[in-house]
Simulated scan of single mutants.
Amino acid sequence: MKRRDFLQLAGAAVAACGAHAAEAPTEVERYRQARRFADLPFGRIAYVERGTGGAALFLHGAPLNGFQWRGALDRLSPYRRCIAPDFMGLGYSQIPERQSVAPAAQVAMLGALLDALHVDRADIVASDSGGAVAQLFLARYPGRVRTMLLTDCDTEPNSPPPMIKPVLDMANAGTLADDTAKWLTDKNLARSTFGAAVYHDPAILTDDVIAYYVSPMVSTPLRRKQYHDFHKALAPNPLAGIEATLRRSMVPVRMVWGSKDTIFPVADAAYLDRIFPRSLGVRQVPEGKLFFQEEFPDVIAEEALRLWRAS
């Protein structure tokens, strides 16, 4: 082959690779394409599923959705059938107007979702308000939980945490959705306020990530109301009286906690470590804030595998 022909072919190959890279779907697009819906008595529940084998159920925080767990799903799907639903009132789940979005209703929805997916038992991985739902799920369906990995989340003595009172006040006043919607037109506002409070590096909230989280919750008057209702249902304390039940649980539990979380301090992890009879202890993430799970998915994967192998 002549040198000129070789260079032309090489140039064409490089151009083709560049075009392919430019067309590669983004992280958000890949997750959106993987989204499915389960038609349940509660509504159309959005979820993403990856992997095969024993099931693992990933429960997100607010105002996020299952996308919070994308990194963990990538790493753990070779070991489990990973299922990440969107809670009612958040994310892309579509529910009727009169459907409750209170934590107890979320628990019932998850039970129905697992039934629809033919899952008898699951390992639960949870964050934030999803951790409260995880504890309630364990109390209601103790035989359906194989293990539980709890990251920064509510506990009975700290639910709802005092630092989210302004958010609950806005929900009760009907202004929370308007305030959140501002993030769609001012992404830097989202990063400098919400992002700075709950991420070590708010830059993880790229423009398309912010849009994926916020858009469904403020898309219609009904969705705005349900977003408010989700937060209003966090008070009074949905975990009141649950400690006695958790003290009797024989489910292996592990806590992974952000050391710099000011909403759920490490003392909350220590409390859970004391009350669960089969606690496997606490791991602190030195730079972690509330939603460190997105920034440090390797830690989640490492601790989940350790817990699953020890159980």
Rank of each mutant, 00 (worst) to 15 (best):
Q226N: 13
F137T: 02
N158L: 11
R247E: 08
W69H: 04
F6H: 09
K187F: 13
M109W: 09
S219H: 09
E303P: 09
A62C: 10
Q284R: 15
V198E: 02
H20M: 15
V299K: 11
A122E: 03
A34S: 10
G61E: 02
D208M: 05
G61N: 06
V299P: 05
R80C: 08
G53D: 09
Y47P: 00
V119F: 12
R3C: 01
S159E: 02
A84H: 02
L305T: 10
S129Y: 10
S311K: 14
H118R: 15
A112Q: 09
D179F: 14
S192P: 03
A139F: 01
D5M: 13
V14C: 09
A34D: 08
F37Y: 13
K165D: 13
H200D: 14
K225N: 13
Q135C: 03
R44Q: 15
P63H: 02
G195H: 01
K187W: 10
P297N: 02
V101W: 02
N172P: 09
R44K: 15
A38K: 03
A240S: 14
T52I: 05
S215R: 10
R50V: 01
L272Q: 14
A233G: 04
A46Q: 05
A197T: 13
I300W: 04
A301F: 10
R75N: 07
R36V: 00
H200Q: 14
M250A: 15
R248H: 12
P63T: 01
M109G: 06
A24V: 08
F37R: 05
A38F: 08
L136T: 01
M163W: 10
S311R: 13
C153F: 07
L57Y: 04
P236T: 10
V198I: 15
P236R: 02
V14D: 03
E156F: 00
E287W: 11
M255F: 11
I124V: 14
R4D: 10
I210C: 08
I83W: 01
Q33I: 07
A16F: 12
V145H: 00
R247G: 01
S100C: 08
E27Y: 07
L113W: 07
S93M: 03
R98G: 15
D268M: 08
D169N: 12
A112T: 12
N237R: 04
V266E: 11
A173G: 05
A240F: 10
L234V: 00
L110H: 03
D123N: 12
F67L: 06
G18K: 03
V256P: 08
L9V: 09
P216G: 14
T206H: 11
P216W: 13
P252K: 10
T245N: 07
V119D: 06
S129K: 05
E302I: 07
P238H: 09
L189R: 08
V218P: 01
E243S: 12
G91W: 04
Y141P: 02
L110P: 04
L189K: 12
